[in-house]
Structures are given as structure tokens and as C-alpha cells.
Design a protein around this nucleic acid. Structure first.
Lengths: 207, 207, 207, 207
DNA sequence: AAGTAATCGAGACGGTACGTCTTGTCTTGGA
DNA sequence: TCCAAGACAAGACGTACCGTCTCGATTACTT
């Protein structure tokens, strides 16, 4: 868990940066506190669930003040979002081998592989919060949902151009079918997502 | 809105009944309060969103005490669930004309037609709450999700038996694809669900 | 300590009453919580001093919620004020024997006797808060200071009418001299107030 | 206001000095920051009252860092104390003309004259803080209260030696009566202190 | 008609977390 | 060594709701 989060921030990503003044006075943001908060949030979510995940609890577990959390994130959901995106970054490549079916299958398999127990809890919480807090919903969309949707859309557009897409489907709807299935399993049935399902989806979406 | 809710309870449905003692002494449940609470919850959701929908607010708007709400529902989400199911009941028939494609299309079109603005807000809130409160999640599942999934499953099983299902698909996965698309649009993209989409789905899921 | 506070409220005094509606619905104010809060405040003041006397601490010690305190008092200072006035009520009679010197001495001696260690801490805190929060200052004035000033003023007015007041003095200034000495000792020198001082004041203020 | 404070520091007074090393390396204390802090504190007190006078507010108004304030003063009260003593220094002479009544009256009149609106707010705040923070109370006592009490004590001791004190009074109690009246007016009644009152006090304390 | 029993609106209760504010300390880069 | 800037841990503030618990009043069924 900690290991995962420590990997984030390799490239100076500045997830919630403030200004662009090149030289600034004053103490700099504590990278240690940032990581402690992300880790604490992730751990507490696993232990107690999102309903009992509180800003106070995160700060206490992380050994920081609440103000430090509020200074850098709007609330608990954004902390979780950063933790998840930091984690998920490496796992979503965009294969382009020329074999559309292989590419699609690889993408789906990688996506499904990233949606496993520690992360699924966070994803479900984030999607829930996105419904409740529209402002967070937009950030969630921009940060997590859209990039993945666009990646798959690009992949499927290539297939479409090559005439490989199943009849009647557009890249957009095919994307929605794929992610719809993913999220429906996460949110509604809680069934696992495996390679077999990736195969089935590949066959259904392509000719 | 109020009209919709007033229609519910035609058959004595006892949404959250207590015991089965046939005759009991004492004052009987106030139907007026029940309706006022359902209406107030629905209105407040539309006005302020789920984040600001509170038990206190509902009771105040309905002109009842909080205890009256807690006596008959576990919490705000269950009030909303009853309001939605009362509304949605009439709209989900299970057509069986022999024409699988027509049946499926009719089912999907009816389902999509029910998922329109006043209701979609409630559905999104309910799905969110189901992620946060697992106990409610089960009730949500049993009351709303499963019945619809089973209806579509039955319909698609008939098609499957007749060999009309698209290759590789089982009735279960086809159901997930359909509802996955529905919920993905509700939760993630907020795009409308129209008859055209029902046609596309029908063509994709059937041969 | 507790004993003192329990004596308060003998006559239904209703220190911070709300409305005058004779019949009210709803649960009634908990006398137990009220007493627990007054006692907790008094004890914590003695143990930790006014600087560390917090609303949270009082509520925690009293075993009540913070809201219960805020429902009935504006803040910690008003709790202390009620505790002190409940305590001090019995100790301030207004003697009228005809012997002005004896009356004055009795009044001062009783006043000084009430200003002893457990109470003095509270009085100093109240006077301090009165300087910092003008709104509380007015309540402090109306509840505690003025009644005592008026009592002594009445006593000294009788002496004045009988020509017993020291030359140049009015009842008002004589009152200010007496209470000025009292408060100066409480706030500035922390010297004790004894019967000897009452005698000296009596001789100085009367002929 | 600013003018008053700028006059302070004529003799190098070092209000809260550190060590006695005569010559030290490094940047020297900024007299500009010191004055800005004193002025800002005084202004903010007048504008917002002691309750809203914060270290952060003072530093922001003064254009300094908080650390600069904490480096030279223990807290906001000590800043105010320095501002007041700087102001009050010139106004309290110790007359000795041989005419005890004239001397006393002059002393009282000068003292009362110094206790006027801009300063009274600070005095009331200081006396309040002295009750709440005992450590500051001692500094307040040593810096402001005792010197004045000793001055008046000295004056009255001369009168006592000459047999001019009112019967039963000692220089100490007479001093307490005078300052008690002063502070009671400042803290409790907020009535002004005028020359007439000085006359009355002179007549009461002397034969 | 009297008694019993459950519901109702009202609202106080003990809790918990919120998001903000301020404290006093620490860490920067510059003077 | 000091300074302005500003992040930090800590902790209290006053508020908002939660779900529970009295209350007196009302409404039904049972005797």
C-alpha cells in the first residue's frame, strides 16, 4: 500500500498546485505529510469503509493537522482520488500493435486488472461522491473517467477506421458499453472482472 | 410529482412493515404523513441535491416529527427508494410477443423512458448511497436492481433458447451490458437515454 | 462544590428561559444536564484556570453534548456566571437595623465573606471576559454587578439622608470606593478581604 | 497614535531583551518592524476590540512575519503593554511641593488624564489578560501597576508622616482606595475620570 | 364510557464530524 | 543573525445532523 503511493510523484506532478510564481518565500509543502495523508486515507477506507472515512480520522492517522489536508485538497474524496490516480497511472497503456482485437483485449485486461480489491473500494466511493457532490464529480470526471474513456475511444476509432468495429456501433457507444459493464459490476453486482470478460467484450465490440 | 406519489400504495403494499399481527390497538399509521414525507424528500432532492437532503429537512418540510420518519424508514435513502419504486412500478412490463427483438426493444425503451430527469436524480443518489451504506445497498439491490435485472434476464433467456442471442453472449452478460450502459450514462456521462440507443442495444445483443 | 450548585434553582429561577408559551410540546430541559454543566465548569476552572476552560472540556466533563451547552448559554462565561450567581444569592442580604455603621459593616463583611477562593477565581474570570466580550459584559453587569451596587447604594442613601455619610461623599461615589477596593484586591493585588477591611471602609465612608 | 509610539524608545529601553552580550553578529533588530507592530496592535485594538486582536492580524497589518513578533514579545498582550507603557511614561511625575493635598491632587489628576479613551481600551484588555494568563499578570504588575502604586504610596507615606492622612487609613489602603476607584470605573462602570473626582478623592483620603 | 395502546408533532438529548480560526513552531530564501 | 513568507501540528470554535428519548395530545380498539 505505502509502496504504491510512494511511487507516485516521480515526475513532479503537482496534483493541486497553487500559483506559478517561480520563486517563493516560506516553508515548502511537506512531501512527507502528503504521502502520510494519501496512505492514511487508503488504509482507513479499507478498514472502515467510506462512510466512516473522515477528514479528522485521516489527519489523525497521518499525524498531521486537519488544516494541512484542507490546504491541499477540497476534502476526503479528492485525497482518495489522488491516491487512486497515483496508483493507477502505470497500469493504463494504450497498445497499438495493428491487431485491433489484441489491442482492445490488452487494454481491457489491463483495465480490469487494475480494478482489484484495494482499488475497487476507492473507485466505488469516488463514483458515489461524484453523484453527491457535483463539483467533485467534475474533477473525478476530468481526472479519472475521461482520460480512460478517451484512450479506449482512440483505440476503437482506429478499429472503426479499419472497419473492424461491430456493425451499428460507433467508437463512442462501444466505449460506453465497455466501461458500463466495468462500472456496473463494480457498483451493482460486485462480480469480479477477469480476462474472460475482456475476451467476451472484445468479441462483442469488434466484428 | 405529488400526483405520482399519491398513486403508490394502491394495493396495500406496506413498504416497511413491522409485524404480522392482524389486528392491533392504538392509533394507526398516518397515510397523510407518509405521503408528505415521500413528497418532501423528492422535492428537496430536486431543489438542493442529495448532499443537502437531511432527515431533519424532510421532516420539517413534511410537517412531521423526525421520529415518524425513523419509525417507518431506516433513513433518508429508503424514503427516496420508496418514492422511486412507487413511481417506477407501472412503467416496467415484461413484453412477450414472440418477436425477441421487438420485446427487447420495448423493454429497453420503457426502461429508458422511466429514467428521465426527476427520477434520474433519485436513482443516482440511491446508487451512491448503496456504495456508502452496504446495508442499504442490499435493500436497493433487492427492491430495485434485481427485479429489473431478472425481468431482462428472463426476456433474454427466451431469446437465447431461440438462438437469437448474439454469439458469445449469455443472457446474464447481455443483461449486464444493457444495464451497464444505462447506469454509465446516468452516473458518468449524464447523456440522455433515448429510443435510438434502445435500437442500437437490441441490434448489438441479438443476432 | 456540587452541593452549592444543587442548591440553586430552589425557586424556579429559569436563568436562560426562552419563551413564555405556557404549554409546550417536546422533551423538557434536563435539570441534570444543567447541573452537571455548572458543576463541571466550576471544577474545571479551579483545576485548570480560565484560559484552559473550554466549552468542549465542560461538555465532556459534564457528559453532555456541546449543543446542550450552546442551547442554553451563549458560552463558557455565561455558564460560570450562572454558577456564581446561584452560589452568591444567599450571601448578600440588605441589613436595615437603624445603625448605619453596623448595617454597612454587615453588608461589607458578608460581601467580603462571599469573595473567597473558589468564587474569586470565577469572579476574576468573569470580569476579564466582560472586558473582552462587551455583550457578555452587559449581562455580567446586569446580573451580578448592578444588583450589588444598588443594594449598597440603597444602604448608603439611607445613611446619607441621616447625615451619616462622610463629608464630600455621595452614595454613588462611596459605593464605587467600596467596590473599587474589593475588585482592586481581587484583580490586582490578590490580597484577602477580611472583616478588618470592612471596619476600615465603614469608618472611612461614614462620619 | 503612531506619533505617540514613535516617541517611545528614546532611551534604549529593550522591553523584552534577550541576553547581555554587548556586541553580537548578524542583522540587527529592525526598529521599523518594532514600531509597525506596536502601532498595528494599537490600531487593531481600537478598531476590532481585544477579542479580535490576533497575532496574525497584528503581523499582517504591520507587514511583518509572525516570528518577528514572537521573537521579541511573548504574545499580543505584551505588545500592548509595551505600547501603553511607552505612551504613559511621560505623564506620571511624582510631585513634592510640601503641600500634600496639592501633590496628591496633581498626581491623581495626571493619572486620570492619562486614562482616556485610546488608552483605556488597552488598559482594560491588559487587566483582563492578566486575570487569564498569570505569567502575563506578573509582568503587567511589575511593569505597570506596581510602579504607580509605589509612587502614590510614597506620596501618601509623606502625608502620613506629616499626620495629614485621614484617620484609620494607612498609605497602603489609601493607595488601594484610589486605584480601586480608578480601575472600578475603567472596568465596571466605564464612567469618565475627571479632575472633580481627583478633588473628592483628595479630600477623602487626607484630613 | 373508561381503559389501553400505538401514533403523532415537537423538541431536547448525547454524539460526531464538519470546515474555520488561531496558536506557537519550523523552514525557506534573501538581506 | 534577522527578516517576510508561509507551511506545519495542534486543538478549540460554533454549527449541522444523526438517531434516540421524552413530552402531551390524538386516535383507535377493547372492555
Amino acid at each position: 500500500m505505502a509502496a504504491v503511493i510512494e511511487q507516485a510523484r516521480q515526475e513532479p506532478q503537482q496534483p493541486s498546485d497553487r500559483a506559478s510564481t517561480p520563486v517563493r518565500a516560506g516553508r515548502r509543502r511537506s512531501e512527507e505529510s502528503r504521502r502520510a495523508i494519501l496512505t492514511a486515507a487508503y488504509e482507513l477506507l479499507a478498514e472502515a469503509g467510506y462512510a466512516r472515512l473522515t477528514v479528522e480520522g485521516i489527519a489523525a492517522r497521518a499525524g498531521t493537522g486537519k488544516q494541512t489536508l484542507y490546504r491541499w485538497w477540497p476534502g476526503r474524496a479528492d485525497v482518495l482520488l489522488e491516491a487512486v490516480t497515483a496508483h493507477a497511472r502505470q497500469h493504463i497503456p494504450l497498445p497499438d500493435t495493428g491487431d485491433h482485437a489484441a489491442d482492445l483485449h490488452a487494454f481491457l485486461a489491463a483495465t480490469f486488472a487494475a480494478a482489484t480489491p484495494p482499488t475497487t473500494d476507492a473507485l466505488r466511493a469516488l463514483m458515489a461522491e461524484a453523484q453527491i457532490d457535483p463539483a467533485f464529480g467534475e474533477r473525478f470526471h476530468d481526472t479519472l473517467l475521461r482520460p480512460r474513456r478517451e484512450a479506449l475511444g482512440t483505440l476503437l476509432a482506429r478499429a472503426h477506421t479499419a472497419g473492424a468495429l461491430a456493425p451499428h456501433l460507433t467508437p463512442a457507444t462501444a466505449t460506453e458499453l465497455a466501461f458500463g459493464l466495468l462500472w456496473y459490476r463494480l457498483l451493482a453486482t460486485h462480480e469480479p472482472l477477469d480476462g474472460q470478460l475482456a475476451t467476451l467484450l472484445t468479441r462483442t465490440l469488434l466484428r
